[in-house]
Nucleic acid binder design. Structure first.
Ligand SMILES: [Mn+2]
Ligand SMILES: [Mn+2]
Ligand SMILES: [Zn+2]
Ligand SMILES: [Zn+2]
Lengths: 148, 148
DNA sequence: AGCGTTCTTGCGACCAGTTGCAACTCTCGG
DNA sequence: CCGAGAGTTGCAACTGGTCGCAAGAACGCT
């Protein structure tokens, strides 16, 4: 994941306190893990990282926090073509919307930004009279290396 | 779901026998359910429909058949923005790739076909040197009716 | 700082999806 | 039509995600 320079640690926590959403030790730990992630993490990975800070944190708390973040549009939920298992992956929502490209052979995930994607979404909004709040484009196939 | 006229019942079963994939009573039932579906079904709905034909069919068989169909590119797996629950939805793969648009308020699912989507995929293939086998674009937001 | 309200947590029970295994059944060749 | 062999099934056990509930923590107000 890009982890752009614009990503200030503590941003999620700031969002919470601005909105009067309670900050607990458990939530603080989850937010830290998500903010400092350098790749897409699934719920299990997030749980394990959180438990290295506080082993008593329950899995339901992590799931509830992920739901909260999702509801507020602070993270995106991805399938990444279910390369491994059938669970979901999470990433901090960034400035630029990007496409996820998953190689079905080596498992590499590539992110791709293009204005064509923005145009396509605008077209959907116009043609379907629909207000888009979330969107997700994922593709699976073979990367150049895996095609020899 | 469109259920286009080009959709001949028995097509999936024909595909199986052409390839020497065994056709069992259980698989036949699952294929029938998927071929005659008029909307996106989740695994639980498929299981219940199959069990109305043969009550002894186990859930693992349905899941395994769905995996088989997915592996052969005969069905697409969708999240539909997890409007209801967190499971996946399935649909027979059609001639035209389409976008799924989910209203987060009323739950309506709209399908949309546009050449812009094809162009975007071509661009990804070219710019990322990637061979696309599967793709999935889902958007969530509010439909015109739900915005008054 | 102490208090009360309200929200959050951990727990246990539950449900959905996966997997190893032994019993079964398809398919093909004879 | 039958039998052999490979592939498939149901089952049971397990894992991952959800939910109701009672105990516990956060935070605004004094
Ligand atoms: Mn999914
Ligand atoms: Mn569809
Ligand atoms: Zn690859
Ligand atoms: Zn709507």
């Amino acid at each position: 994941m890009p982890l752009p320079e614009t990503q200030i640690p503590g941003r999620l926590q700031a969002y919470f306190s601005e909105r009067g959403i309670r900050i607990t030790q458990q939530r603080r730990a989850v937010l830290r893990v998500i903010e400092t992630a350098t790749k897409h993490l699934d719920a299990g990975q997030i749980l394990r990282k959180v438990q290295r800070v506080d082993a008593s944190v329950d899995r339901s708390t992590v799931y509830r926090t992920l739901q909260l973040l999702k509801r507020h549009g602070l993270i995106d939920e991805l399938d990444l073509m279910h390369i491994r298992g059938e669970g979901h992956y999470y990433e901090r929502k960034m400035n630029r919307e990007h496409i996820h490209i998953a190689c079905l052979r080596c498992g590499k995930i590539t992110e791709f930004v293009t204005s064509t994607y923005d145009k396509l979404k605008q077209q959907v909004e116009k043609d379907c009279h629909f207000k888009i709040l979330v969107s997700r484009l994922e593709v699976g196939g073979y990367c150049s290396a895996c095609r020899q």
